[in-house]
Design a protein around this nucleic acid. Sequence first.
DNA 1: ACGATGACTTACCAAAAGGTGAGTACCTTA
DNA 2: TAAGGTACTCACCTTTTGGTAAGTCATCGT
Lengths: 117, 117
Amino acid sequence: MVSHRLSSPDHTAATAAEGVEQAFRMLEGRWKLLILFHLFGGQLRRFSDLERALPDISQKMLIQQLRQMEGDGIVRRIVHHQVPPKVEYGLTDWGQALCPALDSLLAWAEQRPPLAD
Amino acid sequence: MVSHRLSSPDHTAATAAEGVEQAFRMLEGRWKLLILFHLFGGQLRRFSDLERALPDISQKMLIQQLRQMEGDGIVRRIVHHQVPPKVEYGLTDWGQALCPALDSLLAWAEQRPPLAD
DNA sequence: ACGATGACTTACCAAAAGGTGAGTACCTTA
DNA sequence: TAAGGTACTCACCTTTTGGTAAGTCATCGT
């Protein structure tokens, strides 16, 4: 068994994979990355703004993905008690901190060499 | 629309999300990360070694995940023409290059602050 | 009383991902 | 002749995820 020295603790293949899988589970879902990139940079967006920004998403899906990310501590929800209702969504500090990690994944994806044969 | 300057090209929320989703699609799947972490560091592993290292995986699942990663150019397959058969799996250079990106995701996951419920 | 607005819920259905168990092909050793 | 190792392949089933359409709630303007 080879031990991996990645971030802080020493990881085995199993613990490293588990950690990354945790991250993946929080981010996978048909719309989460799209929502995330609309919130990066400290932007606050209303429910209806996001609905407009993601033309093919249904309300059910939008709220489902937002709620999951809120539950995971990536997104925060700001309710303004008004009628008609106004709710804004933004990133937590930890959510913002995802940006460089996704950047390096993006960079990796873009370096893909052409497949031989 | 806010433009994101991540890796090389200028990205909009949509193109950045698409790039990261491409990466995600190549890595998501119940077993891929586990397999990957067993191959990081230039290790070559036989089919049966991987089967033993991942105690709960079925042969169908193992080969399915390996084939997909091979098709994506992350894993390479080395056949030794012998009886009984011997096939080894390892990472391509590009596959190896995933390591730092996954490391930063792992680091992010580990920095998660306690949820203030 | 009626419709508009904004942020959701709910019931129901289809597609995709994942899993189980058995079978195949090949050659070697007993 | 039979058993065994290695790397698969196949048919079938279950679970998870995603999607559609409709309904709810609270207030304000008319």
